[in-house]
Write a protein that binds this DNA or RNA. Sequence first.
DNA 1: GTCTATACCTGGATAGAC
DNA 2: GTCTATCCAGGTATAGAC
Lengths: 194, 194
Amino acid sequence: MTKETTRERIITVADNLFYEQGFDHTSFADIAGEISISRGNFYHHFKTKDQILEAVIELRLKNTLAMIKEWEAASPCAKERIKSYITILDRNKDKIAKHGCPVGTLTSELAKLSHDAQGLANKIFSLFDEWLQIQFRDIGLHDEAALLSQHVLARSQGIATLYNTFQSDTFLKKEISLLLEWLEETCSTTTANH
Amino acid sequence: MTKETTRERIITVADNLFYEQGFDHTSFADIAGEISISRGNFYHHFKTKDQILEAVIELRLKNTLAMIKEWEAASPCAKERIKSYITILDRNKDKIAKHGCPVGTLTSELAKLSHDAQGLANKIFSLFDEWLQIQFRDIGLHDEAALLSQHVLARSQGIATLYNTFQSDTFLKKEISLLLEWLEETCSTTTANH
DNA sequence: GTCTATACCTGGATAGAC
DNA sequence: GTCTATCCAGGTATAGAC
């Protein structure tokens, strides 16, 4: 484990602050304050704030990919892998209660800002989407894979948004189990089709 | 139809801009520009920007209530009324594609800003929530009303977020019909319980 | 690579004339 | 009730010393 470079530290802290406070509302001073660096020093590593955003999204893409690979390593069963995705809602519940879903809230914010990096941020969504599609196809649901994947994404997003608003644990628990039930049903329908 | 006062014009324009660009990212200059008023003149009507936000949320609460009353007037059947809620996703699809759900994106933004008006904004959600609960109880689903209502809210939110990101019409159409199917099933389950 | 100093702009907010 | 002029804080970005 080599020492983190200043550039990496900036990205890590920016990643958290963008999630906690939003991109637009996070200033250089905020980031500089957290890592005890002068504001001027920023521009040695990044020319603009947008470049920091890009680097943060790249990091998120990398981390997302790593998480997906972990799920794949943890289980060879596609259904189990999809479960891993669904249950992040429970594993990350504290952060979601405070700041919502990191993917959904960023894309929503950038959409409103008409920001150039919007397309890049959407790629995080696409990464989950394409991976979920592969899992559904693996289960045998070839034609419906795209719509099933987006169904899971949409359900998770909605659960995250409502949990962020009301922070009801009964709601969260119930919705996760409903989504897992849906998964079981969807899979069993297919095995019947075999 | 009396002439709109300047105060009302400010609120109306702010309502749109907060939706389109976000609250934090909308400046007095933006609002002033749209209605051809000087920035200084603002402070005759509102002491702070936060007060404009409050007025905007109050307006949204009023408009939401009016919409709900329309749905009630349009049909005495609770199931049909819930359908009216679900199908706003289709009726407002163009705006959702561009700016997301006005309720969900505002609450998410204010949550990140730790803004005082967060509680007030959540009331718009609560308004829908309580109304949907009444409809489900009317159908006979007394005990489950709260969770069913939040289920509908979460599903709609998720659909809005994903449509905002990917703008897939096949997705939107499919998800709306799935949610309507779910509604039919949920209602028919109950009549069986009677 | 890191710092200080500083330029420049935007945004919210105020004072006071009309 | 509306305007202009202005203040001040905070934001991004640059220059240049160390």
